[in-house]
């Protein structure tokens, strides 16, 4: 089977008159059809930027994308505007943290979805509306017919998120990009949306790139995780292996400092310091200044990707490499 997404040595620079900041630095990964990959990282780690680059949603004047992105066999970086439009919403679609940004506040949600369907499929509005109803049923919105008539602000947070998922699914994408779609939701609603996304992914067989900062969310939904730090993927592997036996010290630090029923009388494990300033990255491994196991060599150059076991890659000098990496 061909991979659906292949990203090689992706870099994103944000350019202003005075400065040039590399937000994503040599990111490579590939995804098979039907795979769910979580990009995990803290704010500023480049996880959202990476995802937006897949869809070329970054401001073209202020950003420069380098490397290679292939989605469904097509070179995304070489696409002209028409091909790009056909890809967005056709092959790839996206859901956001704040669903209000995806909807026009003064148009009924049903009409908005119907319009998208009508445009992309070249069908009538009535047919589009019928499809919208199907989609609302698909995302388990109760009393769907009535909710199609609602304006975005009339829906509760959870319903709005479901409506946005319906909008994103309206053209049966092969790849769904999800940018922290459950972060702003209440706990009891977040789990509903996660379970929904998981079952939709299985039913429709689509691939999902899911960006989150929450390890728990990744554990619920991901097949594979990619841990990002300071613009680089520092570790990838199946969610099971990464959560149980992390290879990179940053991953173990993140796991240790996530508050989850630790004993109350002891201090929490922490990663000392703060994430680096992207304008002045340390010369070697970006994590070295905060790393409890840093060696002298860590500062000499960015560590190469090594693969100690099939399907696992880490960028750390401490990780031994019995095998050649599958991709660098």
């Amino acid at each position: 089977m061909q991979p659906l997404v292949e990203v090689e040595d992706l870099s994103v620079d944000f350019v202003t008159r005075e400065s040039r900041v590399r937000a994503v630095n040599g990111v490579s990964f590939s995804m098979m059809p039907g795979e769910v990959m979580c990009m995990l990282g803290e704010s500023g780690s480049g996880k959202s930027v990476t995802m937006r680059a897949l869809m070329r949603l970054l401001p073209p004047k202020r950003s420069e994308i380098g490397g290679r992105i292939r989605i469904a066999g097509q070179d995304v970086l070489a696409m002209d505007d028409r091909a790009l439009r056909r890809m967005r919403g056709g092959v790839v679609s996206m859901i956001f943290q704040e669903p209000m940004t995806a909807f026009d506040p003064v148009v009924r949600v049903g009409d908005q979805i119907a319009e998208v369907v009508a445009q992309h499929r070249g069908v009538s509005r009535r047919e589009g509306l019928r499809r919208a109803l199907e989609l609302f049923d698909l995302v388990r919105i109760p009393s769907a017919e009535r909710r199609l008539q609602a304006y975005p602000h009339e829906l509760s947070g959870g319903l709005r998120q479901r409506a946005m998922i319906a909008l994103a699914l309206s053209c049966e994408p092969k790849l769904l990009l999800a940018d922290e779609p459950t972060t702003a939701l209440d706990a009891t609603v977040q789990i509903q949306v996660l379970i929904l996304l998981r079952s939709l992914q299985r039913e429709l067989g689509m691939s999902v790139v899911f960006v989150t900062h929450d390890l728990g969310v990744a554990a619920e939904i991901a097949d594979r995780v990619a841990i990002m730090y300071a613009g680089r993927i520092v570790e990838t592997g199946s969610v099971r292996e990464v959560l149980r036996s992390p290879l990179h010290p940053y991953t173990s630090g993140l796991l240790g400092s996530t508050v989850h029923d630790q004993p109350r009388d002891r201090a929490l494990e922490t990663i000392p310091g703060a994430p680096p300033d992207m304008r002045a990255l340390p010369p070697g491994c970006s994590f070295a200044p905060r790393c409890p196991q840093a060696l002298g060599e860590c500062a000499s150059g960015p560590p190469p990707a090594v693969s100690p076991a099939p399907g696992r890659v880490a960028r750390c000098l401490r990780v031994a490499a019995p095998q050649q990496p599958e991709y660098a």
Partner: peptide, 17 residues
């Protein structure tokens, strides 16, 4: 969230917002 990929939540404890 369960923090364990082998014991995921299969059903939401309550529905709606």
């Amino acid at each position: 969230p369960a923090m364990d990929p082998d014991h995921r939540r299969e059903e939401a404890p309550v529905s709606g917002d």
